[in-house]
């Protein structure tokens, strides 16, 4: 068994050394270069971009608009007219899968943006005021939310909101911010003892200005990676929540399509299942690859390269 070599990157010597600018290279441009050179991450980004264009097209009404239209033929096989066949009601499965892309992006973007903001806010406050009552309160809230099983929490919120279609989003946002907050808290604790914060304090800036103008922007690398991870988690959770009847209430989504297909596959009608799970898998895979690359590129521990 050959010994693994840890510190040598096989491609490093073959790569062109970047031209050093007078002030050195900023960590962001170094991360960007690294990301561009990461083939799986770029493939992931390409997949995500394709899906995003599909979602945009649905928004602008270019395609997918006929997802609810019923036709005569039920469970038709794929044909030039219906690329992926039809459902029990004669609806075009391809149009439904396309329209669901928009649903997925809506859920993913809303949940990722809101829970990242919340995580940044709470994480920053509890990190800057570490070991005070504010910190204690945030940690307590985080501990409480982490202790309740996610699907049951959604069920409880759906219960309390009495079938409100936003119950799913609210539950996801309320639970997904905790990981982001934990990471931001750790980073803020590290940053607040650095000299630039000391300097800001010395010239008499308000603590909240120091925190949100000078410290939080330096946690952006964590927030970016977390947002991509939350996006994936949100669209994967949607599938399971829709199956439980707690997910998307109106419109169509991959989760609803899969839930619908569960009785069909036994009878030998696979297209609904294949279409929805295929689209879902491709988008999640693309996002996972991109998130991995982003995490690697932004990892400060690897800045030596």
């Amino acid at each position: 068994m050959s010994l693994p070599v840890h510190d040598i990157n096989p491609g490093a010597d073959a790569r062109l050394q970047p031209v050093r600018r007078p002030g050195g290279i900023s960590p962001w441009s170094r991360a960007f270069d690294r990301l561009i050179g990461d083939r799986p991450a770029m493939a992931g980004l390409a997949i995500v971009t394709v899906f995003f264009v599909i979602a945009l097209g649905v928004w602008f009404g270019w395609w997918g608009g006929k997802w609810a239209e019923t036709g005569d033929g039920q469970w038709l096989p794929p044909s030039p007219e219906h690329w992926l066949g039809t459902t029990i009601l004669g609806q075009d499965i391809f149009a439904r899968a396309i329209f669901s892309t928009r649903t997925a992006f809506e859920i993913g973007l809303v949940v990722a943006a809101a829970s990242t903001l919340l995580g940044a806010l709470f994480g920053a406050l509890s990190g800057y005021f570490a070991h005070t009552a504010i910190d204690g309160l945030v940690l307590w809230l985080k501990g409480v939310l982490d202790s309740i099983p996610f699907y049951l929490f959604v069920a409880a919120i759906a219960f309390a909101l009495d079938g409100n279609p936003w119950a799913m989003h609210i539950a996801m946002i309320a639970t997904f911010w905790t990981t982001t907050a934990r990471l931001v808290r750790g980073e803020v604790i590290k940053l607040k003892s650095l000299e630039f914060v000391e300097a800001a304090r010395a010239i008499g800036l308000h603590p909240l200005v120091i925190l949100f103008r000078h410290i939080v922007p330096n946690t952006l690398h964590i927030l970016l990676v977390q947002a991509t991870i939350v996006f994936v988690a949100a669209i994967k959770s949607e599938v399971i929540l829709s199956f439980l009847g707690l997910g998307v209430q109106d419109g169509v989504s991959w989760g609803l399509m899969i839930a619908e297909s569960t009785s069909e596959v036994i009878a030998g009608h696979y297209m609904n299942f294949i279409a929805a799970s295929g689209f879902l898998f491709a988008l999640v895979m693309g996002f996972n690859l991109f998130a991995d690359g982003l995490q690697d590129a932004l990892d400060p521990k690897r800045s030596g390269r």
Binding site: K236, V239, I240, F243, G255, I258, A259, S261, T262, V265, F273, S277, L280, F281, V284, M285, N288
Partner: peptide
């Protein structure tokens, strides 16, 4: 990681 639990079960 990219395959949904539901899809695996079915």
């Amino acid at each position: 990681m990219s395959v949904s639990f539901l899809v695996v079960i079915i």
